[in-house]
Every structure is written in C-alpha cells, then in structure tokens.
C-alpha cells in the first residue's frame, strides 16, 4: 500500500466529528473514487492523506509506517495533489514555468537545465502549448489552468495523485480531455489516483473502486461498476438518480 487510513477520526476544534472511524487504502496503480455530499468529509480525508493535518484518532500510514519528519521529503515526492479551483491554486505572480517547477525546487529534485527540461516534458504531457511556459495564470482558461496544476503535480513523477474535485470547475469537452489525461498518466506512469468528486461520471470513467461517504462515515465501498448499477445504500441511490442525464437520441 502506498497510503492508508486506519480507523481514522477527525474533529475540527470543538466541532462535531468530521470523520468517524474511516479506513481506506490506496495501493500501487490503484484508482479510488471518493464520493459524497458537501460536508461529508471528502476534503478532510484528502487533508489527512496529504499530512496537512493529523487525525484525532487512528493513523495515516505511508508505505505501512506513520509519516515521520525524516520521510516527509520522500512522501511529498511520492504523493502529490491537484485542487479543485485552478484559479486559487496557482500563484498569479509566477510564470507557468516557475509554478510547475515548484516541487522540483522545494523537494530539491532538480534545478537549472535539468529542471527546465522536466518542466517542459511535464507541460507537454498535459497538452499545454510550448509558449505557455513564459506566460502567467491569468492568461489561461480554467481547463488550461487545471492542466498546469496537473503538470505541477506530476513533474516529480509521484506514485499517487490525490485529486480533490479536479474536474468540477471544467467544461465537458475539457473534462473529457482531463479524464483522458489522468487515465493516460495512470496507464503510462503507473500513477495511482484517489479522486474526490461528486461527479459520478468522472468517477465511473477513471476509478475502479468507489468509496461513498456520508456525514463522515464510509457508507459504501466496492467496485465502481457495482456501486453504480446496484447501490446498496439509500444515499448512493439518490446520488445516482440525481445526476443530470441527456435525453435519449
């Protein structure tokens, strides 16, 4: 297992339990979808999995062991993230080249011409035009910004990508392209993906496994195909039924 939550509970200060006894594991090359309403704890799980917060109880394991300061750099290199909002997740004052190079700089992976060529390769892999490198975030549309965020997350060749609603700010054609891009990164680089989404079609397209969260608890966990076709929980059934569908041709 790359990353694992074991009986994790989490409480924000004096608030109610945001997560209640959640166990969840992502193995090498796996693809897990995390589904649930706002407030169900999806983003809290991502926060804990990124070691940006510590669980109130239970443990977060990286390669089977707690994430000690000594392994932090390796952890950051192995587990990267893409956020929902490509408008706030990119520094408006940095060029695209500098933004994408950030993990290489901060993790001490590469610099100079080696870093430049890794950045160029990563940007090309996500389909950004070659002239993008010298430009700034405000010159790009939402879909392209999300590509920039994915280029940044994958520039250091991580093993696991935690993507928190990476598609919900995107248009449908772009969404398909980003799904294809993530699927391609999965196939070519063996990248494992944990994707948080309320968009079931995106989960269906990308994730073999689905975990359904409700009020901080895992209410259903199984293969995506089973959960879509024969959901066992009421909440899952409502979720599947609420997805807007196209009229039949």
């Amino acid at each position: 297992m790359i990353l694992e939550l074991q009986n994790v509970s989490y409480r924000y200060r004096a608030g109610a339990l945001a997560l209640d006894d959640v166990s969840l594991a992502v193995g090498e090359g796996a693809s897990v979808g995390l589904v649930g309403e706002s407030g169900s704890g999806k983003s809290t799980i991502v926060k804990l999995m990124l070691a940006l917060a510590k669980p109130s109880s239970g443990s977060v394991l990286f390669e089977g062991a707690p994430i000690a300061p000594a392994v932090m750099r390796r952890f950051r290199g192995a587990v990267q993230t893409v956020f929902q909002d490509p408008y706030s997740s990119l520094d408006p004052r940095q060029s695209i080249e500098s933004i994408v190079a950030e993990p290489l700089r901060s993790l001490g992976i590469a610099r100079g011409s080696e870093a430049r060529s890794m950045v160029a390769e990563s940007c090309a892999a996500v389909g950004l035009p070659a002239d993008a490198l010298g430009r700034f975030p405000h010159e790009f549309s939402g879909g392209q910004r999300q590509r920039i965020a994915i280029a940044r997350a994958t520039v250091c060749h991580p093993r696991l990508l935690l993507a928190d609603e990476p598609l919900s700010a995107l248009d449908v054609t772009t969404r398909i392209q980003v799904i294809d891009l993530l699927a391609e990164l999965r196939a070519s680089a063996g990248l494992a993906i944990l994707m948080v989404s309320h968009d079931l079609s995106a989960i269906a397209a990308l994730c073999d496994e689905t975990v359904v969260l409700n009020a901080g608890r895992v209410v259903e966990h199984g293969t995506t195909a089973t959960i879509l076709s024969t959901p066992s929980q009421d909440y899952t059934r409502r979720l599947v039924a609420a997805v807007p569908r196209l009229p039949h041709p």
Binding site: S201, L228, L246
Partner: peptide, 11 residues
C-alpha cells in the same frame, strides 16, 4: 460527443 461519452459512462 463529450457529453454523450460522460453520460454513457454511467450506463
């Protein structure tokens, strides 16, 4: 085509 593709993924 994209919208249909996403729709089809849901079965």
């Amino acid at each position: 085509r994209s919208a249909r593709a996403l729709d089809d993924m849901l079965g």
